[in-house]
Simulated assay, not measured.
Amino acid sequence: MGVIVYKCINCGGPLAFKAESQNWTCDYCLSEFSEQEVSDFIVNEKAQAEAETSSAVLEEHHLKDQEFQEKAMGYTCQSCGAEIVTDDTTAATFCYYCHNPTIIPRRLEGEYRPEKVIPFKFNREKATELFVEWCKKKPLLSKQFTSTSELEKLSGIYVPFWLFDCHSDGKISGTATKVRTYTSGDTRYTETKYYRVLREGNAIFRDVPADGSKKMDDDLMSILEPYDYKDLTDFSMSYLSGYLAEKYDMDQNNVYGRVSGLIRDNMSSLLRESVRGYSTVNIEDSGIKMKNVGATYVLLPVWMFTYQFKGKTYMFAMNGQTGKIAGKLPISPGRAASWFSGVSAATFVALAIGGQFLW
Rank of each mutant, 00 (worst) to 15 (best):
P226M: 04
D165A: 03
N23A: 08
V343L: 14
G320K: 06
E83R: 10
S286N: 07
P14I: 08
A91L: 11
N123G: 15
A49N: 01
G294I: 03
K71Q: 11
N266W: 08
T192W: 08
N10D: 14
R106N: 13
D65I: 06
M304R: 04
M216Q: 06
T25R: 10
V208G: 00
C8Y: 03
Y195H: 10
V3W: 00
K138N: 14
Y28Q: 02
F131S: 13
M290G: 04
W303S: 15
S155I: 11
I4G: 03
G342T: 05
T306H: 10
A19I: 15
D228Q: 08
A203C: 09
D211L: 14
R113G: 03
F33L: 05
K71H: 13
F33K: 03
T233W: 05
G201I: 04
K215I: 11
N100H: 12
T233Q: 15
D169W: 04
V38D: 07
V275R: 00
Y307M: 03
V3R: 02
R124A: 12
S338P: 04
I103K: 04
D249N: 15
N100L: 05
K7F: 04
Y256W: 07
K153E: 13
L271I: 02
L300S: 12
K121C: 05
P209F: 09
V343D: 06
T86D: 06
G327A: 11
F33S: 02
